[in-house]
Protein backbone atom coordinates (compact mmCIF):
# COMPACT_ATOMS: atom_id res chain seq x y z
CA UNK A 1 0.00 0.00 0.00
CA UNK A 2 2.76 2.42 0.94
CA UNK A 3 4.72 1.54 -2.16
CA UNK A 4 1.60 2.07 -4.18
CA UNK A 5 1.10 5.55 -2.76
CA UNK A 6 4.74 6.37 -3.40
CA UNK A 7 4.53 5.22 -6.99
CA UNK A 8 1.36 7.20 -7.59
CA UNK A 9 2.97 10.29 -6.08
CA UNK A 10 6.02 9.92 -8.34
CA UNK A 11 3.75 9.67 -11.38
CA UNK A 12 1.88 12.73 -10.23
CA UNK A 13 5.06 14.70 -9.78
CA UNK A 14 6.17 13.78 -13.29
CA UNK A 15 2.86 14.98 -14.71
CA UNK A 16 3.17 18.27 -12.86
CA UNK A 17 6.68 18.81 -14.20
CA UNK A 18 5.51 18.18 -17.76
CA UNK A 19 2.57 20.52 -17.28
CA UNK A 20 4.81 23.23 -15.84
CA UNK A 21 7.09 22.94 -18.88
CA UNK A 22 4.22 23.13 -21.33
CA UNK A 23 2.69 26.13 -19.66
CA UNK A 24 6.05 27.82 -19.30
CA UNK A 25 6.92 27.25 -22.92
CA UNK A 26 3.56 28.52 -24.11
CA UNK A 27 3.92 31.63 -22.03
CA UNK A 28 7.31 32.51 -23.50
CA UNK A 29 6.86 31.39 -27.07
CA UNK A 30 3.89 33.58 -27.65
CA UNK A 31 5.37 36.97 -27.47
CA UNK A 32 7.27 39.20 -25.19
CA UNK A 33 5.80 39.81 -21.76
CA UNK A 34 7.35 43.29 -21.88
CA UNK A 35 4.55 44.25 -24.22
CA UNK A 36 2.20 43.69 -21.38
CA UNK A 37 4.42 45.40 -18.85
CA UNK A 38 5.17 48.53 -20.77
CA UNK A 39 3.11 51.04 -22.72
CA UNK A 40 3.30 50.79 -26.52
CA UNK A 41 5.45 53.87 -26.87
CA UNK A 42 8.22 52.52 -24.58
CA UNK A 43 11.77 53.05 -25.80
CA UNK A 44 14.26 50.31 -26.65
CA UNK A 45 16.17 51.13 -23.52
CA UNK A 46 13.14 50.83 -21.33
CA UNK A 47 12.34 47.45 -22.87
CA UNK A 48 15.88 46.17 -22.29
CA UNK A 49 15.78 47.48 -18.75
CA UNK A 50 12.53 45.67 -18.06
CA UNK A 51 13.80 42.46 -19.63
CA UNK A 52 16.81 42.43 -17.33
CA UNK A 53 14.62 43.30 -14.39
CA UNK A 54 12.32 40.33 -15.00
CA UNK A 55 15.09 38.01 -16.12
CA UNK A 56 13.68 37.79 -19.64
CA UNK A 57 17.02 38.35 -21.37
CA UNK A 58 18.35 34.89 -20.54
CA UNK A 59 17.85 31.75 -22.68
CA UNK A 60 14.56 29.96 -22.24
CA UNK A 61 15.83 26.88 -20.39
CA UNK A 62 17.75 29.09 -17.93
CA UNK A 63 14.56 31.04 -17.34
CA UNK A 64 12.77 27.78 -16.68
CA UNK A 65 15.32 26.63 -14.14
CA UNK A 66 15.22 29.96 -12.42
CA UNK A 67 11.45 29.62 -12.34
CA UNK A 68 11.61 26.13 -10.85
CA UNK A 69 14.24 27.19 -8.32
CA UNK A 70 12.02 29.98 -7.15
CA UNK A 71 9.04 27.66 -7.16
CA UNK A 72 10.70 25.34 -4.68
CA UNK A 73 11.07 28.30 -2.35
CA UNK A 74 7.39 29.03 -2.74
CA UNK A 75 7.96 32.03 -4.98
CA UNK A 76 5.49 31.90 -7.85
CA UNK A 77 6.68 35.12 -9.45
CA UNK A 78 5.10 38.52 -9.70
CA UNK A 79 2.03 39.45 -11.67
CA UNK A 80 2.43 41.51 -14.82
CA UNK A 81 -1.05 42.86 -14.76
CA UNK A 82 -1.49 43.67 -11.10
CA UNK A 83 1.68 45.79 -10.93
CA UNK A 84 4.15 43.34 -9.52
CA UNK A 85 1.94 41.83 -6.84
CA UNK A 86 3.24 38.32 -6.09
CA UNK A 87 1.08 35.67 -7.74
CA UNK A 88 1.01 33.77 -4.47
CA UNK A 89 -0.65 36.74 -2.84
CA UNK A 90 -3.31 36.92 -5.54
CA UNK A 91 -3.94 33.21 -5.18
CA UNK A 92 -4.13 33.38 -1.40
CA UNK A 93 -6.71 36.12 -1.76
CA UNK A 94 -8.89 34.19 -4.21
CA UNK A 95 -8.40 30.64 -3.01
CA UNK A 96 -10.91 30.64 -0.13
CA UNK A 97 -13.75 31.65 -2.45
CA UNK A 98 -13.02 28.81 -4.85
CA UNK A 99 -12.56 26.24 -2.11
CA UNK A 100 -15.82 27.32 -0.54
CA UNK A 101 -17.75 27.10 -3.79
CA UNK A 102 -16.21 23.78 -4.88
CA UNK A 103 -16.79 22.19 -1.50
CA UNK A 104 -20.38 23.33 -1.55
CA UNK A 105 -20.85 22.06 -5.11
CA UNK A 106 -19.31 18.73 -4.19
CA UNK A 107 -21.56 18.49 -1.19
CA UNK A 108 -24.75 19.12 -3.12
CA UNK A 109 -23.76 16.86 -5.96
CA UNK A 110 -23.08 14.00 -3.56
CA UNK A 111 -26.16 14.80 -1.51
CA UNK A 112 -28.36 14.70 -4.61
CA UNK A 113 -26.64 12.15 -6.81
CA UNK A 114 -26.26 9.27 -4.38
CA UNK A 115 -29.79 9.14 -2.97
CA UNK A 116 -31.39 9.78 -6.36
CA UNK A 117 -29.12 7.25 -8.02
CA UNK A 118 -30.17 4.66 -5.45
CA UNK A 119 -33.81 5.62 -5.83
CA UNK A 120 -33.86 5.27 -9.61
CA UNK A 121 -32.05 1.94 -9.32
CA UNK A 122 -34.58 0.61 -6.83
CA UNK A 123 -37.40 1.95 -9.02
CA UNK A 124 -35.84 0.62 -12.19
CA UNK A 125 -38.00 0.79 -15.31
CA UNK A 126 -40.64 2.97 -13.71
CA UNK A 127 -41.57 6.53 -14.47
CA UNK A 128 -39.16 7.80 -11.82
CA UNK A 129 -36.30 5.96 -13.50
CA UNK A 130 -37.13 7.42 -16.90
CA UNK A 131 -37.58 10.90 -15.53
CA UNK A 132 -34.17 10.66 -13.87
CA UNK A 133 -32.62 9.48 -17.10
CA UNK A 134 -34.15 12.33 -19.09
CA UNK A 135 -33.01 14.97 -16.63
CA UNK A 136 -29.52 13.51 -16.67
CA UNK A 137 -29.30 13.42 -20.46
CA UNK A 138 -30.68 16.92 -20.76
CA UNK A 139 -28.28 18.23 -18.14
CA UNK A 140 -25.25 16.69 -19.73
CA UNK A 141 -26.15 18.40 -22.95
CA UNK A 142 -26.09 21.87 -21.41
CA UNK A 143 -22.75 23.68 -21.18
CA UNK A 144 -22.24 24.99 -17.67
CA UNK A 145 -22.47 28.63 -18.66
CA UNK A 146 -25.85 28.05 -20.30
CA UNK A 147 -27.10 26.15 -17.28
CA UNK A 148 -25.76 28.82 -14.94
CA UNK A 149 -27.48 31.61 -16.84
CA UNK A 150 -30.76 29.76 -17.09
CA UNK A 151 -30.68 29.07 -13.35
CA UNK A 152 -29.86 32.69 -12.71
CA UNK A 153 -32.70 33.88 -14.92
CA UNK A 154 -35.30 31.58 -13.42
CA UNK A 155 -34.38 31.68 -9.74
CA UNK A 156 -32.74 35.05 -9.33
CA UNK A 157 -34.37 37.28 -11.93
CA UNK A 158 -37.86 35.84 -12.28
CA UNK A 159 -38.51 34.32 -8.87
CA UNK A 160 -36.08 36.49 -6.92
CA UNK A 161 -35.22 33.66 -4.52
CA UNK A 162 -31.47 34.13 -4.66
CA UNK A 163 -29.11 36.97 -5.49
CA UNK A 164 -27.91 37.01 -9.10
CA UNK A 165 -24.19 37.15 -8.47
CA UNK A 166 -21.29 37.93 -6.18
CA UNK A 167 -20.04 36.29 -3.02
CA UNK A 168 -21.87 36.56 0.26
CA UNK A 169 -23.91 34.32 2.49
CA UNK A 170 -25.31 30.90 1.83
CA UNK A 171 -27.95 32.26 -0.54
CA UNK A 172 -25.19 33.55 -2.82
CA UNK A 173 -23.76 30.08 -3.03
CA UNK A 174 -26.85 28.17 -4.03
CA UNK A 175 -27.07 28.99 -7.74
CA UNK A 176 -23.36 28.82 -8.58
CA UNK A 177 -23.10 25.71 -6.43
CA UNK A 178 -25.88 23.97 -8.32
CA UNK A 179 -24.53 25.12 -11.68
CA UNK A 180 -21.07 23.86 -10.78
CA UNK A 181 -22.22 20.61 -9.23
CA UNK A 182 -24.84 19.72 -11.78
CA UNK A 183 -22.64 17.97 -14.28
CA UNK A 184 -21.35 15.75 -11.53
CA UNK A 185 -24.86 15.00 -10.35
CA UNK A 186 -25.86 13.66 -13.73
CA UNK A 187 -22.78 11.51 -14.15
CA UNK A 188 -22.63 10.32 -10.55
CA UNK A 189 -26.30 9.49 -10.58
CA UNK A 190 -25.96 7.30 -13.64
CA UNK A 191 -22.95 5.53 -12.19
CA UNK A 192 -24.64 5.01 -8.84
CA UNK A 193 -27.69 3.63 -10.58
CA UNK A 194 -25.82 1.10 -12.68
CA UNK A 195 -23.57 -0.16 -9.92
CA UNK A 196 -26.52 -0.26 -7.55
CA UNK A 197 -28.40 -2.45 -10.02
CA UNK A 198 -25.45 -4.76 -10.20
CA UNK A 199 -25.20 -5.03 -6.43
CA UNK A 200 -28.95 -5.50 -5.95
CA UNK A 201 -28.63 -8.60 -8.06
CA UNK A 202 -25.94 -10.29 -5.96
CA UNK A 203 -26.26 -13.30 -3.71
CA UNK A 204 -25.24 -11.45 -0.59
CA UNK A 205 -28.13 -9.07 -1.03
CA UNK A 206 -30.38 -12.07 -1.42
CA UNK A 207 -28.92 -13.51 1.77
CA UNK A 208 -29.50 -10.26 3.63
CA UNK A 209 -33.15 -10.36 2.59
CA UNK A 210 -33.38 -14.00 3.59
CA UNK A 211 -32.07 -13.05 7.02
CA UNK A 212 -35.10 -10.80 7.35
CA UNK A 213 -33.19 -7.55 7.19
CA UNK A 214 -35.46 -4.64 6.37
CA UNK A 215 -35.47 -3.41 2.79
CA UNK A 216 -34.15 -0.03 3.83
CA UNK A 217 -31.22 -1.63 5.59
CA UNK A 218 -30.60 -3.94 2.66
CA UNK A 219 -30.33 -0.95 0.37
CA UNK A 220 -28.37 1.44 2.54
CA UNK A 221 -26.13 -0.95 4.39
CA UNK A 222 -25.54 -3.87 2.10
CA UNK A 223 -25.87 -2.31 -1.32
CA UNK A 224 -24.87 1.28 -0.97
CA UNK A 225 -21.34 0.76 0.28
CA UNK A 226 -20.62 -1.80 -2.40
CA UNK A 227 -22.26 0.32 -5.03
CA UNK A 228 -20.21 3.31 -3.96
CA UNK A 229 -16.96 1.84 -5.21
CA UNK A 230 -17.55 2.61 -8.87
CA UNK A 231 -18.85 6.17 -8.48
CA UNK A 232 -15.94 6.89 -6.16
CA UNK A 233 -13.42 6.20 -8.87
CA UNK A 234 -15.23 8.92 -10.70
CA UNK A 235 -14.43 11.38 -7.93
CA UNK A 236 -11.01 11.84 -9.48
CA UNK A 237 -12.68 13.10 -12.61
CA UNK A 238 -14.86 15.34 -10.51
CA UNK A 239 -11.73 17.25 -9.61
CA UNK A 240 -11.29 18.04 -13.28
CA UNK A 241 -14.92 18.89 -13.74
CA UNK A 242 -14.93 21.23 -10.75
CA UNK A 243 -11.80 23.00 -11.92
CA UNK A 244 -13.14 23.38 -15.43
CA UNK A 245 -16.46 24.36 -14.02
CA UNK A 246 -15.07 26.89 -11.60
CA UNK A 247 -13.50 28.81 -14.47
CA UNK A 248 -16.84 29.15 -16.22
CA UNK A 249 -19.19 29.29 -13.26
CA UNK A 250 -17.16 31.89 -11.40
CA UNK A 251 -17.21 34.05 -14.50
CA UNK A 252 -20.96 33.66 -14.95
CA UNK A 253 -21.80 34.45 -11.34
CA UNK A 254 -19.02 37.01 -10.77
CA UNK A 255 -17.68 34.80 -8.00
CA UNK A 256 -14.30 36.20 -6.95
CA UNK A 257 -12.31 32.94 -7.02
CA UNK A 258 -9.37 31.40 -8.81
CA UNK A 259 -11.37 30.50 -11.90
CA UNK A 260 -12.34 34.09 -12.47
CA UNK A 261 -8.76 35.11 -11.70
CA UNK A 262 -7.29 32.80 -14.31
CA UNK A 263 -9.69 34.11 -16.94
CA UNK A 264 -8.77 37.69 -16.16
CA UNK A 265 -5.10 36.76 -16.25
CA UNK A 266 -5.40 34.89 -19.53
CA UNK A 267 -7.27 37.69 -21.21
CA UNK A 268 -4.61 40.13 -19.94
CA UNK A 269 -1.79 37.71 -20.92
CA UNK A 270 -0.51 37.78 -17.38
CA UNK A 271 1.41 34.56 -17.63
CA UNK A 272 2.96 34.53 -14.19
CA UNK A 273 -0.49 34.33 -12.70
CA UNK A 274 -1.73 31.88 -15.34
CA UNK A 275 1.22 29.60 -14.68
CA UNK A 276 0.72 29.77 -10.96
CA UNK A 277 -2.99 29.03 -11.06
CA UNK A 278 -2.69 26.29 -13.66
CA UNK A 279 0.02 24.57 -11.65
CA UNK A 280 -2.12 24.80 -8.55
CA UNK A 281 -5.11 23.32 -10.40
CA UNK A 282 -3.00 20.51 -11.82
CA UNK A 283 -1.54 19.79 -8.41
CA UNK A 284 -4.98 19.71 -6.79
CA UNK A 285 -6.31 17.48 -9.49
CA UNK A 286 -3.51 14.96 -9.12
CA UNK A 287 -3.72 15.07 -5.34
CA UNK A 288 -7.45 14.34 -5.48
CA UNK A 289 -6.77 11.35 -7.67
CA UNK A 290 -4.25 9.90 -5.23
CA UNK A 291 -6.58 10.52 -2.29
CA UNK A 292 -9.42 8.80 -4.11
CA UNK A 293 -7.27 5.73 -4.60
CA UNK A 294 -6.57 5.61 -0.89
CA UNK A 295 -10.23 6.05 -0.03
CA UNK A 296 -11.06 3.32 -2.48
CA UNK A 297 -8.77 0.95 -0.64
CA UNK A 298 -10.49 1.88 2.59
CA UNK A 299 -14.00 1.14 1.32
CA UNK A 300 -13.13 -2.13 -0.32
CA UNK A 301 -11.19 -4.38 2.07
CA UNK A 302 -10.26 -6.67 -0.80
CA UNK A 303 -7.94 -3.93 -2.04
CA UNK A 304 -6.75 -2.98 1.42
CA UNK A 305 -5.34 -6.40 2.14
CA UNK A 306 -3.81 -7.21 -1.19
Amino acid sequence: MQRYILRRSAQGLLAIIVISMVVFALARVTGDPTQVLLPDEASEEQILQTQIEWGLDKPLHIQYFVYIKRLTRGDLGNSFKWAGVPASELIAERLPATVQLSAFALLISAAIAFPVGVLVAVKKDTGIDYAGKMVAILGQSAPSFALGLILMWVFAVQLDWFPTSGRGGLSHMVLPGVALGYYNVAALMRLTRSSMLEVLDTEYVKLARIKGVSERRVIWKHCFRNALIVPLTYFGLIGAVLITGSVVTETVFAWPGLGALVIEAILARDFTVVQAVVLLFAFTFILINILVDILYAYIDPRIRYS
Partner: peptide, 28 residues
Amino acid sequence: SEDEMRRVRGQKISMILQDPQTSLNPVF
Protein backbone atom coordinates in the same frame (compact mmCIF):
# COMPACT_ATOMS: atom_id res chain seq x y z
CA SER B 1 -47.75 -7.80 4.66
CA GLU B 2 -44.14 -7.13 3.74
CA ASP B 3 -43.41 -6.28 7.38
CA GLU B 4 -44.87 -9.53 8.66
CA MET B 5 -43.01 -11.38 5.95
CA ARG B 6 -39.75 -9.94 7.19
CA ARG B 7 -40.33 -11.55 10.54
CA VAL B 8 -40.93 -14.87 8.80
CA ARG B 9 -37.66 -14.67 6.92
CA GLY B 10 -34.72 -15.79 8.98
CA GLN B 11 -36.90 -16.51 12.02
CA LYS B 12 -39.31 -19.08 10.58
CA ILE B 13 -37.90 -19.95 7.17
CA SER B 14 -34.30 -19.39 6.23
CA MET B 15 -32.18 -20.32 3.27
CA ILE B 16 -28.63 -21.30 2.40
CA LEU B 17 -27.62 -20.12 -1.04
CA GLN B 18 -25.71 -21.99 -3.66
CA ASP B 19 -22.50 -20.08 -3.98
CA PRO B 20 -20.64 -19.31 -0.76
CA GLN B 21 -18.14 -17.20 -2.69
CA THR B 22 -20.70 -14.55 -3.43
CA SER B 23 -23.27 -14.89 -0.68
CA LEU B 24 -21.34 -12.91 1.91
CA ASN B 25 -21.05 -9.17 1.63
CA PRO B 26 -17.42 -8.41 0.77
CA VAL B 27 -17.24 -5.10 2.60
CA PHE B 28 -18.31 -6.25 6.06
